[in-house]
Write a protein that binds this DNA or RNA. Structure first.
Length: 297
DNA sequence: TGTCAGGTCCTCA
DNA sequence: TGAGGACCTGAC
């Protein structure tokens, strides 16, 4: 794939990348800070930067980004080194359900997101609606994150400003009362507790957690307040890039039950089935199945 | 007004 | 060890 950089316009053009569809990527529920705008592009914040991602013909255009950003951030963020076409072909060859899901959601990629932001975002996501999750994260950033100034005037033409996600140091100094205006409900306590636990040793354990084995990392995350198996799997997949993680939420339960005939409460069998059928890329399969069943309803 | 939403925590048997 | 209720909030 060729990449063209226009440093003056701060525009990057990926020429005909395979398996890259912004709508599938940003609408499949893996990230909460990108929103579709009138022309079908997606505008959002990641890694402290504001970008706009558009599909023009078969190319992908990233606005407000220069070559240095692409090399240091966006190439990894959009997981450009993974062979999604090969993985999809392999999935389609061995599983008919997944084949249909892939045909439906062609172009999903697993975003390599910040692990702290993923941790808090998925704590907020529990027992919650996506629009409300987005609102909570937006409000949390607006109240306690730094404003991002380097944004073109045509961005946020609804008048909104852009804020980076607040650090754990910042949130560790807050109380539940400070978070009341954000309406996080009982999740506010989880977030404060988790931020304090991470900040306790200056963030050292958390920063090193990326080197842990899957089993160790799961245990570490489950030790944080407000993190159960589903949230831990989401964080491992989206924040740590552990592609074999397979988060089982109510939608995946429905898929497993309706399309694979597994008992809706038989989580053990679902995990066993996912490991056997989807293997090292279980997380990618999960995203296709999630997007498929959610839009099938 | 009641139910539900991409769960987790806590209690109790 | 696992089942079941409580939990914030807001859209429908």
């Amino acid at each position: 794939m060729q990449t063209v950089f226009d440093e003056e316009k701060k525009r990057i053009r990926l020429l005909k990348p395979q398996a890259f569809d912004p709508k599938s990527i940003f609408d499949c529920g893996q990230c909460f800070r990108f929103n579709e705008i009138e022309d079908g592009s997606f505008e959002g914040i990641a890694k402290g930067k504001v970008i706009r991602v558009s599909k023009i013909d078969d190319d992908i255009v990233i606005d407000n980004a220069v070559k240095e950003d692409y090399v240091e951030i966006w190439h990894e963020y959009f997981d450009m080194e993974t062979d999604y076409v090969g993985i999809m072909e392999s999935f389609s060859a061995r599983d008919e359900v997944l084949k249909s899901a892939i045909e439906y959601g062609n172009g999903i990629r697993i975003l390599k997101q910040d692990k702290w932001e993923s941790l808090v975002s998925f704590i907020i996501s529990q027992n919650n609606h996506i629009p409300r999750i987005k609102k909570c994260i937006e409000n949390l950033s607006a109240m306690f994150g730094c404003e991002i100034k380097d944004v073109p005037v045509e961005f946020g033409n609804d008048g909104r400003k852009f804020f980076a996600f607040p650090s754990y140091e910042t949130l560790a100094d807050l109380t539940e009362k400070d978070l009341e205006p954000i309406k996080l409900g009982y999740r506010a306590g989880y977030i404060i507790d988790t931020a304090k636990a991470i900040a306790e040793d200056g963030g050292e354990s958390f920063e090193k957690s990326g080197t842990l084995s899957n089993k160790e990392l799961m245990e570490y995350l489950l030790g944080l307040k407000g993190v159960g198996p589903k949230v831990a799997n989401c964080i491992m997949l989206f924040g740590y890039g552990r592609m074999d993680s397979f988060p089982i939420d109510v939608w995946i339960r429905r898929v497993m039950n309706r399309l694979y005939g597994i008992g809706e409460n038989d989580l053990k069998e679902m995990n066993r089935f996912a490991e056997k059928t989807f293997g090292e890329y279980g997380g990618i399969a999960q995203q296709y199945l999630f997007y498929y069943i959610k839009n099938l309803n």
